[in-house]
């Protein structure tokens, strides 16, 4: 006897939902990471169905493949986008950035950031407490115990932007993956004056403008004593990296510079390949192998020998 009532109630309160939402939801990755800017995949599917064209909608996790399937379901055309990847704009590993004090509070970057400038002399750099690792839904971030910096696993990173949002010091940037995964960026976010930076960190961008002068494409701008390479303008010519006096410019996935015969980039042998290698990480920083007649390329100055006016 309850059945008719139940049936009636069910009919009465039935919510009409566009069946295409389900179909779109089906082809989405289902990670519910929010990287698209919508609350979960379902929200994104709804937005896709509602929108006239898919111009502003992009699922960074699924990428172009996923978007073209979405477009197929809806009978629209997807906009191709170059895939992004997260990069860390700090290279102040423990050994290059000596500790000046010992943090003993709760293990959260945001808490430490709200409290003070951090354990080292650089108040802009990575705090190394791993908030980014905790928010990563894709297991693409790991702390390197040696450098104390997080390492992005390029294969797993979906450019969802969770780490970009989480980092209290805004040290992550989503940059185009680049052809063959090759990209060049300045791994430093310090906004102090050059002299002050050198005290805190050996690999800080000191804003010397050498790279800016070297770049033929106007891709490099210096702001707040810090260089920035515009990925849209950068042609990956690799001219900027060798002139950097502090090794702040990172080249990723390039063959080593001193190429003679190697076919595969012989990573293990490039002794100047520093820091960012850890197990499972595919990101490899092919550091400018210093061709070392010490005179041309001045080695990093010892901060103590400098007369720092402060």
């Amino acid at each position: 006897m309850w059945l008719p009532i139940l049936y009636f109630v069910a009919q009465k309160f039935k919510v009409y939902e566009d069946p295409r939402i389900d179909e779109v939801d089906e082809v989405l990755p289902g990670a519910n990471c929010g990287g698209c800017g919508y609350p979960g995949c379902r929200g994104f599917a709804e937005a896709c169905v509602k929108s006239e064209d898919l111009g502003n909608l992009y699922c960074p996790v699924g990428g172009n493949d996923c978007m073209s399937s979405v477009a197929k379901v809806l009978g629209r055309t997807a906009v191709e986008k170059e895939p992004d990847v997260a990069v860390l704009l700090c290279n102040g590993a423990c050994s290059l950035r000596p500790n000046t004090n010992k943090y003993d509070g709760a293990g959260s970057c945001t808490i430490a950031h709200n409290l003070y400038g951090g354990e080292t002399g650089c108040q802009y750099g990575c705090l190394g407490l791993g908030d980014c690792v905790r928010v990563c839904d894709f297991d693409a971030l790991h702390m390197d115990t040696e450098t104390g910096l997080p390492v992005v696993d390029e294969e797993k990173c979906t450019a969802c932007g969770a780490c970009v949002k989480e980092c209290p010091r805004n040290l992550f940037e989503l940059r185009p993956k680049g052809k063959k995964g090759r990209r060049i960026y300045v791994a430093c976010s310090n906004k102090d004056k050059g002299s002050a930076k050198k005290i805190g960190c050996d690999v800080a961008c000191i804003g010397c403008r050498k790279c800016e002068k070297e770049c033929a494409f106007d891709a490099i701008t210096i702001e707040n004593f810090n260089a920035y390479i515009d990925p849209q303008k950068c042609k990956l010519c690799r001219k900027c990296a060798p002139v950097c006096p502090t090794n702040a410019i990172h080249e990723i996935n390039f063959p080593p510079r001193k190429v003679k015969v190697e076919k595969e980039p012989a990573l293990a042998e490039t002794s100047s390949t520093t820091s960012v290698q850890s197990e499972g990480a595919t990101e490899v920083v092919a550091r400018k192998p210093r061709v070392k007649p010490e005179s041309t390329d001045a080695p990093k100055p010892d901060p103590s020998s400098e007369n720092n006016p402060s």
Binding site: T100, K102, Y103, D104, G105, A106, L115, Y116, E119
Partner: peptide, 8 residues
Amino acid sequence: KVLTISAS
């Protein structure tokens, strides 16, 4: 001295 830092 390397001082210890934590919040109050």
